[in-house]
Nucleic acid binder design. Structure first.
Lengths: 149, 149
DNA sequence: TATTGTTATACTCTATAACTATA
DNA sequence: TATAGTTATAGAGTATAACAATA
């Protein structure tokens, strides 16, 4: 037998899913600790300054019809408000409340801490990992949400 | 400015999710081409020889109550049969039909081809990637299904 | 008592389609 | 006509709880 055989794509796939699973669990746990369902947490994390509903749908890579419910949840929790656009009355801008800003900061800080636990590597390895992963996704790639896609 | 700064855990997290997303899309597309919903495809891929319903729940990392429906689907498609265990009449063994074996072989072949497209790297890099990813998951880690964790 | 598989039920996240109000 | 957001609805995929049959 030889020392190291080239890993199969299936082995690499399983490892990627395991790492992604650990990261997802960490994020979901962090969100739950802040009383946020995962999708609301993802939306909150992405909100900076003022965004239109439409932009949020783009960022979340999901259909616009879902955004209504997600934002309803954030509004019910007092984290975000819908502000009319003075120039185009169809458009609504999402603006974080003070509590929304606090919650978002806590979410970002804690989820970063959680990801740090997973990526507990020396700088040399972090660089190598980043370069390898970068080479696996086209520059313009972005996920679609529909799991059936 | 310096040449390379250490990537943040957030950057690495996003890259892992992008790669996982590409892989998931590839698998889902392959499954759809073979007329299989993703979960049935995942179950079919894992079936080799004879497995109990219970084992399948373990492999899929989901509650046993879900397995009934998944196996119902595979049975409806004529890919698997439930065989009683002669020694323990509570237990049912899942046995692939001939068509089930064919479909599974096609699924494995095509999903491997699809993953190869993502992991299009020289052997040196595949080895490096495997070692890095391996260091990120505890040996005994395995995903939980509930997205609420 | 404990375990295997099933059923009933509910929740989350996604989609499509039809609608409104604007542009 | 086209776009922003909403509503209604449906379909996956998950869970928990209660159950029957069996160990």
């Amino acid at each position: 037998m030889h020392a190291e055989s080239s890993p199969t794509s299936r082995e690499l796939l399983e490892l990627v899913f395991q790492v992604a699973g650990r990261l997802r669990e960490g994020f979901t746990r962090t969100a739950a600790e802040l009383d946020l369902p995962p999708t609301q947490a993802q939306a909150l994390a992405s909100l900076e300054g003022s965004a239109r509903m439409r932009d949020l749908a783009e960022v979340l890579a999901c259909d616009a019809s879902n955004v209504t419910g997600i934002v309803d949840g954030l509004e019910r929790r007092g984290l975000v408000t819908r502000q009319p656009d003075p120039a185009d009355r169809r458009v609504k801008h999402l603006v974080l409340t003070e509590e929304g800003e606090r919650r978002r900061a806590a979410l970002l800080a804690e989820s970063a801490r959680s990801a740090d636990e997973v990526f507990d590597l020396p700088e040399r390895d972090r660089l190598a990992l980043r370069d390898l992963l970068k080479s696996l996704v086209p520059a313009d790639w972005h996920a679609s949400c529909d799991p059936r896609q």
